[in-house]
Amino acid sequence: MPMSQDYDLYFTMLLIRRFEERALAEFSSGKLVGTTHAYIGQEADAAAIFSSIAQDDIIWSNHRCHGHFLAYGGDPYRLAAELMGKKTGLVGGRGGSQHIHWRNFFTNGIQGGIVPVASGMALAKKKLKSKDIAIVFIGDGTLGEGVLYESLNIASLWNLPILFVVENNRYAQTTPMEVAVSGSISARFEAFGIKTYEFESSDVLELRPGAKNAVDYVRENQSPAALILHTYRFSAHSKGDDTRDRETITSIRAKFDPLRIQASRLSAEELKKVESAVSILVDDAFLRASADPFPVLKP
């Protein structure tokens, strides 16, 4: 039985959810050290966007990158190994959670700094007459970084094929957007003459056509666009650092959980199948990775 698009989208989101839950658990039990930023709650964004891109598009993601990476088609085992600092990790243990690279997927841990870099890769694509585009992810808090606005100005002036994705989960670490983001998010992009797409939803079926329109617009017009997604993060910013009111988060989760929304479209049989497939993948990823060797410093 060929799986439906509904199934595939749910698979992606569940893989992200279970991977992140496992990573958090391994941190709590002390098997993982350092830091991690779970994507739990935002899975529909990644599933919608990454099912709309082309194979050689350039992706620049930020600290909250695991969901993007898994939706890109990245190997959960290589990611788990990187989180554990193993030689077999995506970058041999040199980068860790927020500094990974595989194929055309890159991430870095400096807020905003990736935006001009992604713009430059978009410029290269344009100069080389390719139809590939660049996609760069930022959060609401990163709207505070100056280099973003330098990049928006140039992306618009030079008609760069780049999609700016703002995942507004309404918090930057502990700071609610009300005290960090003035005015309107979309007006920031519009002021530079950049086409904007804006959605307030955690339903992947609602986001998918919107993401596809935005991606297609950038590719066809060879011009920048912004995709603004208002979303929620259900877990802590990184590990145990949630200062938000528990009850509010619980009730938001009950209402907006993207997995629950999408699960309602799958049969009981499909749900069983997907749970088991994902659990095998995630188990295998973490078990294999934990048996791998640590890297050795080359002189």
Partner: peptide
């Protein structure tokens, strides 16, 4: 941004 774009 121009150094960043050049990085890219």
């Amino acid at each position: 941004a121009i150094v960043g774009i050049s990085n890219g």
